[in-house]
Design a protein around this nucleic acid. Structure first.
Lengths: 179, 179
DNA sequence: GTCTATAATTTGATAGAC
DNA sequence: GTCTATCAAATTATAGAC
């Protein structure tokens, strides 16, 4: 059976991804698991500890999925498609936006350690793409294309969520060029 | 001199756009103006009232700026550039993301009236572009392009904010095609 | 319109029993 | 590891004086 720590992270991730970090309380999380808030504090003494654990786990999951989906692929187009699929799945499976999309918006109101971890997630996303875009394209152009793609994925997730229409995501990302 | 109501809206907008709706309190806003929270409640009895007023004012400002910037322009490219400029100015002048970008992320944790107003803002943004893209392009394709552009603007604002680098926005939106 | 005062609730967090 | 109990602070919101 799943242990409490994982259940706490699962519940907290759901809550943060739908309402934001400040709108989620230890009591909310505890109540969802049928335990007390003091038990949540046992696993994560400070809210910041919980936030950092959420970001670390989420980032690992995204990059594991990226490696897995692009395992046997080689072309830039296939790598772009892999990232689009990872984001699409994140939206479809949870009906929620990206954890770091939420925290990136709230950035200025978060502990600096969390804001830094979120920024690192974004940099890693862009870098992952830059390394897989066509070599013959100038590095500055590759950076621009990668920045554009990750921005589009983040923005379309947020808007699809707000509009209550997942097809908005597909519509918006359909315009991402093969580069 | 500016009256209190406008000062409240200005202060609240700054706070919500940097930390999120739930992270902002009536006391925060009052303290910034050197008044008491009860005085803020006089102008906006419920927090929801304040939120709705913020969205209405922000939306009006954006569409006024769009009309103004695209006043004497005619081509689709000029209209796209106008919208990019409006978003760039919103980021540059405030060092903050779009109010509705923040609230769209927090959507599920907001009063339904606010979530609906935010969704309407996004729909109006997309529609504004759809009406200005080339007529000869099929309507579905125009919708996809418009959705892509607004998504990219929202996403790149959020990421530029998280990364503390406004040039990220310029890099990402430089890829928006003239269509 | 702004204030003081306060109610009712929620929050992050801790001490200590089991 | 989970609980009860509790705290200090913060939150939305209201009543009523000025």
């Amino acid at each position: 059976m799943t242990d409490t720590l994982v259940k706490i992270l699962d519940s907290a991730e759901r809550d943060v991804r739908s309402k934001g970090f400040h709108a989620v309380s230890f009591r909310d999380i505890a109540a969802e698991l049928g335990i007390k808030s003091a038990s949540v504090h046992y696993h994560f003494p400070k809210k910041e500890d919980l936030g950092l654990a959420l970001i670390a786990r989420y980032s690992d999951r995204v990059f594991d999925a990226l490696e897995s989906k692009s395992d046997k692929t080689h072309t830039p187009k296939e790598h772009i498609d892999a990232m689009v699929d990872v984001y699409r799945s994140a939206l479809a499976e949870s009906d929620r936006i990206c954890l770091c999309g939420m925290l990136g918006a709230e950035s200025a109101g978060l502990p600096a350690t969390m804001a830094d971890a979120v920024a690192e997630f974004f940099n890693k996303n862009v870098d992952w793409l830059v390394e897989r875009l066509p070599e013959q394209v100038a590095i500055e152009e590759r950076k621009a294309r990668a920045s554009n793609i990750v921005s589009t994925l983040q923005g379309s997730m947020m808007m699809a969520n707000s509009l209550g229409d997942h097809s908005f995501f597909d519509q918006a990302v359909s315009q991402i060029s093969a580069g």
